[in-house]
Design a protein around this nucleic acid. Structure first.
Length: 806
RNA sequence: GCCGAUGUGGCGGAACUGGUAUACGCGCGCGACUCAAAAUCGCGUGGGGAAACUCAUGUGGGUUCGACUCCCACCAUCGGCACCA
């Protein structure tokens, strides 16, 4: 029975709004529940159909929590600084704040049209000065703690965006945002020392309930590695170079060393050697080549001998130092000792005829011979037998690591060292549409933070939003703004013209939701203490290594400064799968396969869209969009609408049983984010009620409670239609009765020697002998047993009967 | 190359702890209603076979009375990382 979704959606959305039923209370006798979804970036394209997948899922969870008696915080806001808006503003000559406001209005309207139970009174936007005041304040906290520093360093430079990019923002040498080419450039950048927190970010993963794959990705990204830093002098020079080695077991095999072409000491090292010019020219070329796009590391293993040697303290001969293309400057020390037991080193040595000297061999004699003859590179085999150094001869490679490290440290060859793949956070952007960095540069005092009473430092109006050709932000062209006085000495000073990255505002937004209108603090500590940590945070896998890591770090820092009360911000983190286009590819504007949420909501109703988002497939998996699937959900809701016609004083026991099974399944499935099977169980219930032709008012009411988190508009409308007082949002989540849910009779398969030959219907309490009797009464089963000797009977009550014959 | 995930009808997918594989939805077929169509409702629907039965959960092995589920080897697709010594 078709219902008018336009009317009822409008009606209930208004009622939710005027009643304030979704507004979280900062004090309550109820237990608290803080449910969070990633706040969207309000792009000009409007809400993506993928957004509601995460939002609906968390909406269902928090709606259930409210009905379970929790004081729920489910907030929403906007991550509204950033490049797409700025680029759009440049193109159209409009102000970014104006464009942002419009985009937010669109997003707000679209989210409201889906009936999410957000507490709109706590809405925040990172672009609001009242918000970014605190982002700036927090940056200054980093600065004051010595964690924000300016460093001249090679950065990734996007040629078309004209900004410096974090390593994380470069994908395959291309800019993550615009897809354009990047190159390396030296630039003074504000950095934040996230690496100081690397160990804690790693260790504290043990204390949180994140999906295992999220933890694994974070661990890999942090990339902690333990090993040894060799200390070694360059022959004829007064230079000691360290080389990091995470596989120090085979140090006796080292026969040469390599240095990164961009190594700052290279010039000094080759000075005065016969081939000085040649080497430097080679290093210059290869540095350029490495920075350019399309440099394929494995195809271009190149190098040149520097003419210098390393004094080898191990007594195995001096090591020639080569410049090699494959050495990474920003990991370890940019200088590496090489041996036969590393594939790159092995290939490099073969190419340039550098001697190799293996020191461990396979047990198998034939294989060992190959290693001896340098036919293969042998490495990372726990069973390998060591041949050097003397104290370890005959031992297994897989067992000596710790002992060898202790040994080399005692011998004074080097020291224990730890390295991370994680790099410090490049915090500067040479762009307009971001938080201004609230520091001034004074000739006398250096970098000086603005005092609190000068925050927020408002982003000034500029004429043009294009970055300057020098790579500075548009703010640099505003001399009135740039020239200021030093807060410390009142002398002339200049403002920092770089702005902050998006990741800044999004690193702490979950804290602002807790006290969004506070002018004296980013949030009152008592309130933080009440609400934190976030109980359940759902978001995309694409944010695992950036946003999720940055915000954990940010929160830990605030925790160390005493501003927040939990060391970890999120108790639980889950992840949703992408919604793909109907052809199974990613939705994109250029392909024209994007689904417009406004259209489908208008045509099929918000409830059908919500339901379909949950039904379409396993929540964590990517699933293609299908209009037909959506239509099916609408049909189901129409069927539900017709159900009141079946209301009678009594219902058959099957309907009652199915209801309680449904209560159980829906309750459990929501907790485990198995929304697809929860929906299918509700369909089964409706089918059952129709099949038996009757349902009591109470049962129908209970069903509406279960349906409400998924399809809140219709559920409320139908509940009201029953003459019930109050909104479903104020009702109590139903309890399931195990006795009522239990099946009296079940049909089980009967196997003869493992093959199903028939079924029997019996009570789960039936004894084996009675079950066998029933089985024998089945003609087909009896036929298969005839004349056979029964060897064994397996009877699992309520599940299976298997009669094994010879 | 490394890490992670996935592979089941025509399609999206379900299957608890190893116990009747294909729930639920879509699509399709037939029927009812209709002048007709749409919508709706009813019935049917993995392949082969009249049936008994048989073949089917990416491929090949194994464990088991019994395997989508556990073990070994491999293939394919997707996502992430990628000269990290």
């Amino acid at each position: 029975m078709a219902y008018n979704h336009h009317e009822i959606e409008k009606k209930w959305q208004e009622r939710w709004e005027t009643s304030g039923v979704f507004q979280a209370k900062d004090q309550s006798n109820k237990p608290k529940f803080y449910g969070l979804i990633e706040f969207p970036y309000p792009s000009g394209a409007g809400l993506h159909i993928g957004h509601p997948r995460s939002n609906t899922a968390m909406d269902i969870i928090v709606r259930k929590r409210r009905m379970q008696g929790f004081n729920v915080l489910y907030p929403i806001g906007w991550d509204a600084f950033g490049l797409p808006t700025e680029n759009y503003a440049i193109k159209t000559g409009r102000k970014p704040e104006e464009v942002t406001r419009e985009n937010i209005d669109t997003f707000r309207r679209q989210l409201k049209s889906l009936g999410f139970s957000f507490d709109w009174s706590r809405e925040v936007s990172t672009t609001d000065p009242e918000y970014y005041k605190w982002t700036q304040w927090m940056f200054l906290e980093f600065f004051k703690a010595g964690l924000a520093y300016k460093a001249k360093m090679p950065i990734n430079w996007c040629l078309s965006c004209k900004i410096g990019l974090a390593n994380e923002e470069v994908v395959d040498g291309m800019c993550e945002r615009c897809g354009g080419a990047t190159e390396k450039r030296e630039k003074e950048q504000w950095m934040i020392a996230i690496t100081k927190y690397a160990d804690r970010l790693l260790e504290d993963l043990e204390t949180v309930n994140y999906l295992e794959k999220i933890k694994i990705q974070q661990r890999n990204w942090i990339g902690r590695s333990e090993g040894v830093n060799w200390k070694q002098k360059i022959k004829d020079l007064d230079i000691v170079l360290e080389a990091y080695d995470s596989v120090p077991q085979t140090f006796m095999a080292q026969t040469f060393a390599v240095i990164a072409p961009e190594h700052p000491l290279l010039k000094t090292i080759v000075a005065g050697t016969p081939n000085e010019k040649e080497v430097m020219e080679y290093a210059r070329q290869i540095t350029q080549k490495k920075a350019g796009k399309g440099f394929e590391v494995d195809k271009e293993v190149d190098g040149i001998f520097t003419g210098r040697y390393l004094d080898n303290p191990f007594g195995t001969g001096d090591l020639p130092i080569w410049v090699a293309s494959f050495v990474v400057m920003d990991y370890g020390t940019g200088f590496v000792n090489c041996s036969a037991h590393d594939e790159r080193d092995f290939d490099f040595a073969k190419k340039y005829n550098i001697p190799l000297r293996p020191v461990m061999f396979p047990v198998d004699a034939v294989e060992a011979e190959k290693v001896k003859n340098l036919e293969v590179c042998y490495h990372h085999d726990p069973e390998a037998i060591m041949q050097a150094p003397a104290p370890f001869v005959g031992r297994k490679w897989g067992e000596v690591r710790e002992e060898i490290i202790s040994y080399v440290v005692e011998q004074g060859f080097g020291e224990r060292a730890v390295n991370y793949k994680l790099r410090d956070w490049v915090f500067s952007r040479q762009r307009y549409w971001g938080e201004p960095i609230p520091l001034v540069s004074c000739e006398k005092c250096g970098w000086v933070p603005l005092p609190d009473n000068q925050l927020p430092l408002i982003l000034p109006d500029v004429e043009k939003y294009e970055p300057t050709d020098t790579g500075e932000s548009p703010l640099a062209a505003m001399t009135d703004w740039v020239n200021t006085t030093c807060p410390t000495c009142a002398g002339p000073a200049k403002r920092e013209t770089d702005t902050m990255p998006n990741w800044a505002g999004s690193s702490w937004y979950f804290l602002r939701y807790i006290d969004p209108h506070n002018n004296d603090a980013f949030a009152l500590k008592e309130k933080l203490s009440y609400w934190m940590p976030v109980d359940w945070y759902n978001g995309g896998m694409e944010h695992t290594t950036l946003h999720l890591l940055y915000s954990r770090f940010w929160n830990k820092f605030l925790f160390d400064r005493g501003y927040v009360t939990t060391s970890e911000p999120y108790a639980k983190r889950t992840s949703h799968g992408l919604i793909l286009a109907s052809d199974g590819t990613k939705m994109s504007k250029s392909k024209g396969n994007v689904v417009n949420p406004d259209e489908v909501v208008s045509q099929y109703g918000a409830d059908a869209v919500r339901l379909y988002q949950m039904f379409m497939g396993p929540f964590a998996e990517p699933v293609p969009w299908s209009v037909n699937g959506l239509i099916g959900m609408r049909r189901f809701l129409d069927k539900v609408t017709a159900l009141p016609q079946l209301i009678k004083a009594d219902e058959s026991v099957e309907v009652t049983r199915c209801l309680h099974q449904t209560i159980k399944k829906v309750s459990d499935d929501i907790e485990n984010m198995r929304f697809n099977t929860a929906v299918s169980q509700m369909m089964i219930f409706v089918n059952t009620a129709k099949e038996y032709g009757s349902i009591t008012k109470d049962s129908f009411k209970t069903f509406l409670y279960l349906l409400c988190p998924f399809a809140p508009h219709l559920a409320n409308e139908l509940q009201e239609g029953l003459g019930e007082e109050g909104m479903l949002e104020e009702k109590t989540w139903p309890e399931f009765d195990a006795a009522l849910a239990k099946e009296e009779m079940v049909e089980i398969g009967v196997q003869v020697s493992g093959k199903v030959r028939g079924t029997i219907t019996l009570s789960p309490e039936t004894q084996e002998a009675d079950a066998l009797e029933l089985a024998n009464a089945n003609a087909n089963i009896a036929r298969h047993l005839e004349g056979k000797e029964v060897v064994k009977v397996i009877y699992v009550a309520g599940k299976i009967l298997n009669i094994v014959v010879k």
